[in-house]
Design a protein around this nucleic acid. Structure first.
Lengths: 210, 210
DNA sequence: GCTTATGGATACTGATACTATCCATCACAG
DNA sequence: CTGTGATGGATAGTATCAGTATCCATAAGC
């Protein structure tokens, strides 16, 4: 397959494919002569993955690169690979919440984690985001949304178990790693969409005339 | 309160506040003389909301503006305001999935919506994203994640109900609208963080040595 | 009166994700 | 075997976004 055909097969413009090659997201094709390379099914698959991560999950190119490198290295332990996927999904910038708001939120989250019996690395990126979000909701006067955190967590845990069940079906470690990473990232998009659809119909039902 | 104090109160640099004023995210302060304005508690609150949407929920400035304008207008119906929040959360660009993959995904989603008894506008932004995501997961060989869509949807519906319960506590329409919008957007960040934490501990438990 | 802060306007910056152009091959149709 | 178009590789240019920086005339506060 030449680059033009790869482009047609995936609906990605040739210059964009070249850009991904330059950035190291996509491995180079096999060179038959200095300016002739051939691409295979792996390239089609990889390109589809890249586009899904970028377009659907809004993952920045630099993080896509990291994730793919991590998937390609079969020496990296699974939890490290998961960590990369998590970092790709959490914003890097931190919100400056007031100190007491942050300590209160931290306490609530610590309690939540203990209640649920979770074991979470204290440096987990999602932890900081969760704390900031709770602090922000509180400071915006949306305490109602935060008081039932445990119940949300229970619900969330339920379908996270389902997701992990689905992914565990894959036998080999490589397939497992790929499933986990794709599942983590595109799973978020999936859940978010479902949530919005549910919200739309429930809210329409409830506040017909407001 | 002068701009410097507003800046200290919210930890947002003065030039950034000026930028938000320029962009119309933040209403101008009350002018006592041509170059002296005073800001109040509403500005502090508004600024906190802006930062939370931008930093935590990664909503682009232009959409934050839309949302705030919509919240400020008390003539716009609630469902329209919710619609804006939804549009702020769904990517604008569309992924080009192959036609048959898309029709298959569309069929599955249509069935899902019927099963759940949801009523969803056919132009709902989340609908397109859901369809694209399913098509992408399929084309990436992650069918396992898609076969139990109904079960995920049930779980998601459950906590969406909880969220809406929490928000409904607010009596006036203005408060309700604000809660719904903030809840929709920051709620997503909240749920996403919980999901990642749950995933971390469940996966660590399950694949201790892979 | 002197320093600092302010409102308002305009200009500049850095990051991100592409696009465009160029050029020396290379493939292949006629 | 020659002309047309695609290709690989390199370099440069572009659009958008989210701020930062600078300037200036004026105002506040010691």
């Amino acid at each position: 397959m030449r680059i033009g055909e790869l482009s047609k097969a995936t609906d990605v413009p040739v210059p964009t494919i070249k850009y991904y090659l330059r950035e190291g997201l996509l491995p180079a094709g096999e060179l038959s002569s200095p300016n002739q390379a051939s691409y295979g099914e792996t390239h089609v698959r990889r390109l589809r993955l890249i586009r899904a991560l970028i377009e659907l999950a809004q993952v920045p190119v630099a993080k896509v690169k990291e994730i793919l490198e991590s998937l390609d290295s079969d020496t990296e332990p699974l939890h490290e690979q998961i960590g990369r996927a998590h970092r790709a999904l959490t914003p890097t910038r931190r919100l400056a919440a007031s100190d007491d708001a942050r300590t209160a939120a931290t306490a609530q989250v610590t309690e939540l984690i203990a209640n649920r019996g979770w074991s979470v690395h204290p440096e987990a990126p999602a932890l900081a985001t969760l704390i900031d979000t709770i602090a922000a909701l509180r400071s915006l006067g949306q305490d109602n949304l935060v008081t039932h955190l445990d119940t949300y967590a229970e619900s969330v845990e339920r379908f996270t178990n389902l997701e992990i069940d689905a992914v565990t079906a894959n036998p080999t470690r490589d397939q497992l790693a790929e499933s986990v990473v794709i599942g983590t990232i595109l799973g978020e998009t999936l859940i978010a969409s479902l949530r919005l659809l549910a919200q739309e119909s429930i809210s329409a039902e409830r506040w017909k005339n407001r």
